[in-house]
Nucleic acid binder design. Structure first.
Lengths: 366, 366
DNA sequence: CCTCTTTAGTTCGGATACTGTACTAACTCG
DNA sequence: CGAGTTAGTACAGTATCCGAACTAAAGAGG
């Protein structure tokens, strides 16, 4: 750490503040971040040079004193690609820095019984279309993230297993090229539930809860765990496999080898009441181990309605040790089924927010 | 964050490096931390002024060049108190900054069927004796942490429930006074399993694993979860309640209200083979949710021998999803049963390492 | 319409902490 | 005893932050 790291950190703090809390004046930023007005001015000048923030027409509110000029994250000019491969569709979207989803392209078709090459070609097509849209709208895309329904190693770019996709030990290092992304384009991948949780953190329950578990039922059953505003990925990125928590040791055998995994109770003709009970059993374990503020039900579980959520909450609170003092809230996700897709783009955007200096300055002598 | 925070951070980095990696020369520190020699010299001078490090007699190794003067953490002069209340004993210890346990005092007696006041008086006595020892040895104690067998809120200084101690909703805000600790003495408290995990992180498995789950069987059954070298406490400090993971839904009722909790299978006449199977069932869930590198068996589970650990590992790996790529290691703790006690002192010491500037400078004009 | 007050934002001097280079210190080797 | 090597210090240069003083732009009030 040296002086430039301090600068980097402060740029990140200011940009994050603008992205999360919306446009405001330099003066307000100074107050809210604890930095001085002078420093904030310098930081904003820097961010303006990088095209990450912009001055806005601020309505003169008729208040005493010199009117402020609000600055806001440059939503219109910077964005990221979110990609997704799911059991029955592939999709690509562009989300801008202000958090708006600017374009979505999908190709709905079963991906289970075709070759990986076919699926990748489908993904390439929607990706190309999304990038063309971005170019047309003047959005500078600074990275892409791919959501996958399985165990992923983001570092090695390997998909270990995606049971519902029938993919095993897939080496995805050449994927960026196959998708025809630009050379050296920042490209990462992650588990679909993790990215769904990230979307929830930025655009949903995250506004209310600091620590929560996002349960994603799309094909399989996964969970993304957010603790203190940070995603818990585990030592190897395998965390959150809620579907394979055993709730009935004498139950039906699961594809994973064990018996009575929660996932074996999740099928189209499942009795909601019974599912609520089994889900609550699995969540009770999660609460005992992780102690989150809330559980957010996503995917097809959100569609089961508030009644289902209440049933889960009741079962959950009944026998949970800490429920008397801090009962864990159970909510339905307010995001659409695109949570993972949007979360993927969000993950890519987070890289800029964490370090705005990766975007080059376009200052020129005057 | 400003310039002085940079300084604080670097002081912390250097001190932590010395504590964890042992004494070494300024030059070596510079290389290993990436700081320049000049900066390290300045930082060491500062730490010397605070009495946190000391220059050592370095054996001239007969190597070419000017011989180095090693500096090391001032183990002999700075330390912290670790306190513990358990079902059948209270204890106090002093651990110095170098990690050595300098004194331990215990009072073994059942704490379950006596008043809280009696227990606190017992703890006060061992605390006073430990502090007297510290004074005699010239150790400046900079704080204390208390390990408790139950759900603790460290901020509010409340013990919500300690089932095995029969304590409920105990307000411990006046405890520092009752123990006759000095006025404004930094005093915190935490769950016994969490602190055991901290001890394991600093003095045991932590050297080998970045993320692990420490299973503590002492009275009840708890777990301390370490992820990326940091303790996972949960949103309310309730994380790690491994004892109340349900492994047999139709099993015996547990004090917590549920049936077939892991803890109900842990009694003196338990069949080790059966216990291994149930423990592995619970740990499989932990691995699926948290994805640690290893599980460390502590307390009475460590005493069951390597055979038991192997049995747990075999059961665990059988049906765990990610085991094929990253099997979770199962180890016995190498620490004594004092893990939580030592961990408590370690937690207090960590405060200095995190911010060495809390110790005043004793520089004087010359 | 002019002055006072209020709030926004900039400029500038002072303090601080880091870096890199040049230096001094202390030892071994031949 | 000098050349070579490594440890540690001194010092100038640079970047950043802060605080105070300043300029800018509006409303309030006579």
């Amino acid at each position: 750490m040296d002086l430039s790291d301090v600068r980097r950190h402060h740029l990140s703090v200011v940009l994050e503040h603008l992205v999360r809390s919306g446009p405001r004046s330099r003066s307000a930023i100074a107050q809210e971040t604890g930095l001085t007005k002078a420093t904030v001015s310098a930081l904003i000048t820097d961010l303006l040079d990088r095209g990450l923030v912009q001055e806005l027409d601020t309505p003169t509110a008729g208040r005493v004193g010199r009117p402020a000029t609000d600055v806001g994250a440059a939503g219109h000019s910077v964005g990221a690609l979110g990609l997704e491969i799911d059991v029955d569709e592939v999709a690509a979207c562009v989300v801008d820095l202000a958090g708006a989803v600017r374009t979505v392209h999908r190709h709905t078709a079963g991906n289970r019984d075709v070759t990986a090459r076919t699926v990748i070609n489908r993904l390439r097509d929607v990706t190309q279309r999304a990038m063309a849209d971005a170019a047309r709208m003047g959005i500078d895309c600074i990275g892409a993230t791919l959501a996958l329904p399985g165990l992923v190693d983001p570092q090695a770019r390997t998909l270990f297993v995606a049971p519902n996709l029938h993919w095993f030990d897939a080496d995805l290092r050449s994927l960026a090229t196959q998708l025809r992304l630009p050379e050296h384009f920042p490209f990462t991948m992650d588990n679909e539930a993790n990215l769904g949780a990230l979307a929830e953190l930025r655009h949903g329950a995250g506004q209310q809860f600091d620590s929560f578990v996002f349960v994603s039922a799309a094909g399989g059953l996964g969970a993304g765990i957010v603790l203190d505003g940070r995603l818990l990925r585990g030592a190897h990125g395998f965390a959150g496999e809620l579907g394979h928590v055993v709730v009935e040791p004498s139950g039906k055998p699961c594809a994973c080898g064990a018996r009575g995994c929660l996932e074996t109770f999740l099928h189209s003709d499942a009795n909601p009441d019974e599912l609520a009970r089994h889900l609550a059993d699995a969540l009770r374990t999660v609460v005992h181990l992780i102690d989150p503020d809330a559980v957010v039900l996503g995917g097809s579980l959100a569609a089961l309605g508030d009644e289902f959520a209440h049933a889960v909450a009741d079962h959950l609170h009944a026998d949970t040790l800490g429920a008397r003092w801090h009962p864990c809230a159970v909510r339905r996700s307010t995001l659409s089924t695109d949570a993972a897709l949007v979360g993927a783009a969000t993950a890519a955007l987070d890289r800029i927010i964490a370090d705005p200096t990766i975007v080059p300055t376009r200052a020129f002598a005057h």
